[in-house]
Design a protein around this nucleic acid. Sequence first.
DNA 1: CGTTAGGTAGAACGATCGTTCTTTCTCTGT
DNA 2: ACAGAGAAAGAACGATCGTTCTACCTAACG
Lengths: 212, 212
Amino acid sequence: MLNGMAPRTAASRAPRKTAQGGSEARERLLRTASELFYAEGIHVVGVDRIVAVAGVTRATFYRHFPSKEDLVEAYLGVEDANIRGTLEGAHGATDDPVELVGLLIEGIAEDVARHHTRGCPFINAAVEYADTGSRVRRAVDKHRAWFRGSLEHVLRSAGADDPVTKAGQLVLLRDAALVGGYLDGWDNVRVAFVSAARQAAGLDPKAPGSTG
Amino acid sequence: MLNGMAPRTAASRAPRKTAQGGSEARERLLRTASELFYAEGIHVVGVDRIVAVAGVTRATFYRHFPSKEDLVEAYLGVEDANIRGTLEGAHGATDDPVELVGLLIEGIAEDVARHHTRGCPFINAAVEYADTGSRVRRAVDKHRAWFRGSLEHVLRSAGADDPVTKAGQLVLLRDAALVGGYLDGWDNVRVAFVSAARQAAGLDPKAPGSTG
DNA sequence: CGTTAGGTAGAACGATCGTTCTTTCTCTGT
DNA sequence: ACAGAGAAAGAACGATCGTTCTACCTAACG
């Protein structure tokens, strides 16, 4: 895996800039680091690995990132931006709260199935960074607070009642779907997730079996 | 934290054995390693840390554990044994499936609130060990397969219908409770977990708000 | 044209990683 | 009493960790 990304040869060794203003080397560092961090973990992936795969020298690395922890923060920042984009995209899709909640659940399932097959980048990062006060943990907390609040806002603006409880349950079930999809395989988790999520959101008011 | 456990002085340096047959040094190693692994993570806790806190030398460590990975396996073995004990204890508690599922949910909530405030030891270990074929990952898979199957068995023997789906949803929600309790605080997750779990199990057939 | 920011190449830093080794001591079992 | 197992104490192994450094080069910009 990740072998398709061969170490970069010294083809062009000049400072090229990207359309967004960031340098090409910096973006390559951030992209390869994101893939390696997510696929294998943060502590196990050393700086030497990252610069070797990215085809960049250590000096270049430390020119763009003061320390490895800054790179980790940037990695989480990319993930955060991605999720913000997709969620805001789904925001204006519909006004019907029922349809909206259904779209949210489908979107989560789609995301877990296609990308994020190794769990949640933020949960995984929090597992590796036990210190609550670290910058990584603060980034995780910030992201989760935004996500929960954003779900509440979407549900409220769509007219759903008890948006706080519903948002809390959706966060809960999304975490579970990401973890379960990673450890048990998405196929073994999908039906449990969808049924639990739809029940929690009030889309399927009746339980599958009435206990007896 | 963990400062209350002072490095052991060279009080008695003789091979003492425990009632269970294991040596005292081995048990102290396993106990301190379990606490450190769970509290801070596996990769960040080095062998030197473990032997220093346990008051044991490196030679003694490698006499009892061929490698660090064996210690990690033993650590997960202890956690596995604990859960097996508590689950089997709840098994014979009642014959009423409704009461049983309620007890299970309460037991999970109790466990997350009191112990396991840093998430699930197996999920955390799987995050740090990305290689599916590693012994650690196989131990995680084995534990989760047993837990899921055991939940199914308990539910089935208590007469609940659709025990496979119910067990899957309970596994899902337990994962979520452990992760959420760690990252968001148990107080912010408790009501969402209990309501979702009771809905999923069919104890509370009606959703909190009927969508509109 | 010259400056300079951004890049390459590679050595080197101290620290820590997991692991192995030798030596000496003391308790336990027979 | 004696053998052997369990543990202490500590040096040492090569490897890797994150980080810093010097030296040279090249493309873009004023």
